[in-house]
Design a protein around this nucleic acid. Structure first.
Lengths: 333, 333
DNA sequence: GTGAAAGCGCTAACAT
DNA sequence: ATGTTAGCGCTTTCAC
């Protein structure tokens, strides 16, 4: 099964390799019509397919970019990735998605693997655990865009959402509905967005002179969320509203709610920070804080593309606003 | 920002390129300890990272495989992909996922793009629209595994599920629960698995001497599903149970059901063919026909790996069995 | 044990 | 308008 090369095509067509190369790169300017036709025929006859690996080696660009998501189980990661892919598609590029699984070691491994494969740039949902590596890429001027999390001390284009303001607004909404006992569950407060979401929650309570009670706040590993909720709902003054800090904690909460036969929204109003697919068709419908994932992905791709093509502006922070999608379940109390 | 090459490392360490290459490939057998250390130090000092593109060009393998899913919106595609990625991970390979979007033109484009990028093999959820291309790969002995759909006339390792038997069993279950008016919705019957699912449905009815009524069967584009359901539920004898042929049609059906305030399972038992994430926590819980996606993906990866490493057996059809996961909603009537 | 040299398949000056 | 040539960064015989 011998591979057909450009040289074979050249021989078959009776021209030189460079002419064939011109042809492949659609630089027909200085090329006789009959030459063109001969080459076309030769390619067809031999079933030739160019080898992009060889081309990349020479050109020093692969037209591929890498996306490293912190955790692919978050819906927003896949939505952002999808937007980036669409952008790539329009710009004759391709995207490879890798899942760091919230593990800095895996993240490092993927960054290194993708760079070894010569991808032209990287969109990263940083775990935050590889500061030195991030800085190194910055020093080398390697094209990178961060999404979801700002990393202090690393000067890279970064796209985030207004976490704090969004939860603030959501909690205000609950308060307006008459709720005062509002719980919040999140994964561990190890990363900036989660902390900001909790801060927004606290701020909203404070601004309404509602006491912040630690019994109403549970931040722990996903598999321990349920037991915290158990405690929370065993309180004499159990919450009448619950804010889930992201989709994964939301699903845990819903499992608990179902198991305890708590009725939403009659017994408990629920709001979740994150895009929940089909939130609108589930019963009960769920109020969500939606991140503009598509726009974020598009912007990330665009920023990366500019860097790759040396049209880089100074690194900057882009903050996108979330949208509170109010559905009946939050009309509580 | 000059790239550090293997040649630079060799010079720095005062050895030849081939020795460095040996080192990189962990062939330390015939290598002095001091040489090894010198090279290690040089690599560290220069911050050298090998160029996989160059290596691939020489070795004629990229250690990458491609996955082309027919439609990434199907949950089962992502689950299978995930399993394949895990397998790759264990075998020092990497997977690239592309979405054909049910479009044979896109499918062809991706197959060609991935092969131009020299991926070592392909897992394809075939659209069925590129028979000649499939056959060509078969002729060239290019490593390929099909998943989800058997393509007649193409002799390639193929992994499918027992569609017919699975729906048969599901419908029997409904009948045992006392249902006789059982509806079914699916996307258009253009591909084999969907046809088989409908066949299983019909067979079950026939075997129980229940008349097959066309009013109870709707197979059409997703966006037209709703209007078919409207007709179905306007019948004097409306169905008491509904089988959704896949996840996408299920979501359409659920939107309709919710809008019409039909209560599940009191008014209508629902079963869906496909893995629905969080089917267990939604209210009502939904009975599902679960495909063993992880096992399927693992098998696909294994079959591909064997082909890549020339341990190919004869192409064969592997049929996996689905599991009916009965939840309360199907206890109807 | 280590080095020299010949490619892998392609592109891009530079000639002609 | 087309051909010649020199690599891209690595691996891999085959010498020494």
């Amino acid at each position: 099964m011998k591979r057909v090369t450009l040289a074979d095509v050249a021989k078959e067509a009776g021209v030189s390799k460079s002419t064939v190369s011109q042809f492949l790169n659609k630089r027909y300017e200085h090329m006789g019509d009959e030459t063109r036709e001969k080459i076309r025929a030769a390619i067809e006859k031999l079933g030739y397919r160019p080898n992009y690996i060889a081309r990349s080696l020479k050109q020093k660009r692969t037209s591929m970019i890498g996306i490293i998501v912190a955790n692919i189980m978050h819906r927003v990661s896949t939505e952002v990735s999808r937007a980036i892919e669409d952008y790539c598609h329009e710009h004759d590029m391709h995207a490879i998605v890798c899942n760091a699984d919230d593990d800095p070691v895996k993240e490092r491994k993927y960054i290194e693997m993708l760079r070894a494969r010569q991808v032209d740039g990287l969109v990263i949902f940083p775990t935050g655990g590889n500061i030195e590596l991030y800085k190194q890429m910055e020093r080398e001027n390697y094209p990178v865009v961060f999404v979801d999390r700002k990393i202090d001390g690393v000067n890279v284009h970064t796209i985030v959402v207004n976490n704090r303001e969004a939860t603030y607004q959501a909690v205000c909404h609950l308060i307006e509905q008459g709720h005062t006992r509002i719980g919040m569950v999140t994964p561990p407060l190890t990363i900036y967005p989660r902390i900001e979401r909790v801060n927004g929650y606290k701020q909203a309570l404070m601004d309404h002179r509602i006491e912040i009670k630690s019994e109403y706040m549970a931040s722990d590993e996903i598999h321990r969320i349920a037991s915290w909720l158990e405690q929370m709902f065993a309180l004499p003054q159990k919450p009448t509203a619950l804010l889930a800090g992201n989709d994964l904690s939301f699903f845990e909460a819903m499992a608990f709610i179902k198991q305890q036969r708590i009725r939403v929204p009659q017994d408990l109003a629920v709001i979740v920070f994150d895009n929940i697919p089909f939130a609108s068709i589930s019963t009960p419908t769920i109020t969500t804080i939606a991140q503009p994932a598509y726009e974020m992905g598009k912007k990330a791709a665009e920023l990366l593309w500019k860097q790759i093509n040396n049209q880089c502006e100074k690194a900057q922070l882009y903050t996108f606003s979330c949208r509170l999608i109010i559905r009946e379940s939050s009309k509580g109390k």
